[in-house]
């Protein structure tokens, strides 16, 4: 009954297409990373900026606000040393965040940064940041963690306020152990 143009291999081809699309779903993960690296959006600000050239500081200033966030069950105290700073573009500044481990166990923490507005994140240069590495805390230990940054003078002129936000996470397996033993 088959029509003359019947394609015996069509079911196989369609199965291959379905499998390829399953793979494509996973390919979206690296594609998304590349896309975010190019545009500077998303959470791709947790790496040192290689090309920090301290140019002549410009006269223009912007306000940088510091935000600290914890998810619901994170066993930490976490806050910025200052709420905001008036920052001259092109000049290096340093500040700190304070974190304390509220459990008895040693915990490894990790800060994930985010800059708002998202389009400004590629102009926000961090030369030193506690977010570049994992932070180990003994039980009850609290300390200040350093941050050195500058804002690129190329920042678009309509932006006069930047927010730097950190969310502080504990290594998940460690939290599970800490919760189960308390």
């Amino acid at each position: 009954m088959n029509t003359p143009q019947a394609d015996r291999w069509l079911p196989g081809k369609l199965v291959v297409l379905a499998l390829a699309m399953f793979g494509f779903g996973f390919l979206l993960v690296p594609l998304y990373q590349v896309f975010c690296d190019i545009t500077g959006i998303g959470q791709r600000t947790g790496v040192p900026t290689a090309d920090v050239v301290v140019e002549q500081p410009s006269d223009r200033t912007v306000t940088v606000e510091f935000v600290a966030t914890l998810n619901q069950y994170a066993p930490w105290e976490f806050r910025p040393a200052v709420q905001s700073m008036e920052v001259q573009l092109g000049k290096l500044y340093d500040t700190t965040y304070f974190a304390q481990n509220l459990t008895e166990q040693t915990l490894i923490g990790r800060a994930v940064p985010s800059v708002a507005p998202g389009t400004a994140s590629k102009y926000f240069k961090k030369t030193e940041c506690f977010c570049f590495t994992e932070q180990e805390f003994a039980g009850d230990e609290g300390r200040d963690m350093g941050l050195v940054f500058s804002v690129d003078p190329a920042l678009p002129s309509h932006i006069d306020r930047l927010t730097l936000s950190y969310t502080f996470f504990a290594d998940r397996t460690e939290v599970a152990q800490a919760n189960s033993s308390t």
């Binding site: 297409l17 379905a18 979206l28």
Partner: peptide, 21 residues
């Protein structure tokens, strides 16, 4: 055929995030 496998991939990633670290 083009998109159901993408959903399958997405929820599989949820599964491994939840249970396989």
């Amino acid at each position: 055929i083009a998109v159901m496998p993408v959903l399958a991939g997405g929820v599989t990633m949820l599964l491994t995030d939840a249970f396989f670290g």
